[in-house]
């Protein structure tokens, strides 16, 4: 069996790469697939926190590369889902502790025994990025509907296009705020897709539940009611090749929105 190796990248920091990695990984594992998450953000590791595994890490990816342990020993199993495991980044080392060939070798080994290897890429376009994409054949570019994030995503897409090994890349639009899009104060999904001319794999609404889920160390896909959780589960299904319609975020929700809408219609009639 040869699994798929997908890198989750963005260029800009803080747009939700790690949250996306944790959630897609968890969703795929819940769907019954064997998944390994690799945190390649050496020195700034966070994926362990989002999964609530920070107290279980003994060995890191650098220990594997410097042969202080076997690859299997460094894989930390998820608390709830035995299908999911994490290969953590070293917190005390920097990006130069690993090179692209070593990471590719690790990915090649891991994909033999797993359905999915998801790589959480560090921000930036330097060595850390080059390392992270080295073993991947697919990419998910995370961006938000903000100018700086889109510009950086465009750079990343340019770099991915130049890489022969990357066979496909898709866009994940994170932190979308429908009310701002409605008032014309945020670029719409269509605007971003048109500007980047990149196929879309998911639209994730801004959700305060992300903050609480991070606090608890539990990915939001485990919350059946959260909208962002549903959006991430849909992304996982699309990765698996299913056609799932994008969530309709325009629907006005809540009592006030309905009143407002009713008045707007009334006024239009008059």
């Amino acid at each position: 069996m040869a699994g798929r190796v997908i890198v989750i990248t963005s260029g800009k920091g803080g747009v939700g790469k790690t949250t996306t990695s944790a959630n897609i990984g968890t969703a795929l594992a819940k769907a019954g697939y064997k998944v390994v998450l690799i945190d390649t953000d050496l020195g700034l590791r966070n994926l362990d926190l989002l999964l609530g595994l920070e107290n279980r890490i003994v060995y890191t990816i650098v220990d594997v590369i410097e042969e202080r342990c076997k690859l299997k020993q460094a894989l930390v199993k998820d608390k709830k889902n035995p299908n999911l495991s994490l290969l953590a980044a070293a917190q005390t080392r920097d990006k130069s502790a690993v090179n692209a060939d070593q990471l590719k070798e690790i990915c090649d080994t891991l994909k033999e025994e797993n359905d999915f290897v998801l790589i959480d890429c560090p921000a930036g376009i330097e060595q850390g990025f080059q390392n992270a994409v080295a073993g991947a054949t697919e990419a998910i570019v995370v961006t938000t509907p903000e100018m700086s994030a889109i510009r950086d995503a465009d750079r990343i897409i340019g770099l991915l296009e130049a890489k022969e090994e990357i066979k496909s890349y898709k866009l994940l639009l994170n932190r979308v705020r429908p009310n701002l899009i409605k008032s014309n104060d945020m670029m719409s999904v269509d605007d971003v897709v048109e500007i980047l001319s990149c196929p879309l794999i998911g639209i994730i609404p801004e959700d305060t539940g992300i903050i609480t889920s991070t606090n608890k160390g539990e990915p939001i896909v485990n919350d059946e009611d959260a909208l962002a959780g549903k959006a991430y589960r849909n992304v996982a299904q699309r990765i698996l090749g299913e056609e799932v319609p994008f969530l309709d975020l325009d629907e006005p929700k809540g009592f006030m929105a309905k009143i407002k809408n009713a008045f707007a219609k009334l006024k239009a009639k008059v």
């Binding site: 510009r151 465009d154 008032s183 014309n184 006024k267 239009a268």
Partner: peptide, 27 residues
């Protein structure tokens, strides 16, 4: 109570246009 389309002073279109230009130059 104003219909929403009338509201935004289109800071979004400013952003879109600025971004398009800067991306052309980047590319």
């Amino acid at each position: 109570f104003r219909p929403q389309e009338e509201q935004g002073d289109a800071s979004k279109s400013v952003a879109t246009n600025r971004l398009k230009l800067v991306l052309m130059q980047d590319r």
